[in-house]
Amino acid sequence: MSNNSFTPTLQALCTALLLSLAILACSKPETIKDLSDASYKLLNTDSSTVDFPQDYKGNISVVSFIYTHCPDVCPVITANMKNIQSGLEDTSDIQFIEISFDPQRDTPQVLKEYKKFFQLNSQFSLLTGEPAPVDSLLSQLNIVAKKIQPDSLQQDSSKYDMIHSNKIYLMDKAGKIRAEYPASNVPPKNVIEDIQKLR
């Protein structure tokens, strides 16, 4: 093949590559899970009932999953949520929601303490609830949370750790899950870029 005949092919390839990258960078995230008609009755930190996601429609929500007895990874997730918040120039249409997958121990009062200790402002909703709706929501969102007993605590069934999913979801204003990220280590800018696309 001569250089002259090869050049147009290369040019076409490069153009296609650049176009693909440009389209990828600008496209809105696809719907992963549609919760727009779903309704889960959960509890806020003041023990008031919250209808998730209906009560959050109209705003973009950054949603994560934690348990408060987790001393390491869950606070890392919370710190990442705060970093996403602080990285946004305008947070007026954004909500930050952390849902406990340990409703047995995470009562509204316990979540209220967690919110206070980690200095989360009023844009953060920390939600818990009766085990049935919480489990149903977690199942719907493919969030895994399983109790484990460390050897050293085996005699006390009320003390347990959990292995769990490590996800942050981005939910649009209609209640559709549009993106998911590794919660403890996603760079905040990645989430912020997707938030801008959904605005």
Binding site: C70, P71, D72, V73, V144, K146, I148, P150, D151, S152, D161, M162, I163, H164, S165, N166, P182, S184
Partner: peptide
């Protein structure tokens, strides 16, 4: 130590 398993779930162990 905190760890991540092959299913991307995270946990903690002594």
């Amino acid at each position: 130590e905190s760890y991540k398993d092959e299913n991307s779930t995270v946990g903690m162990r002594p």
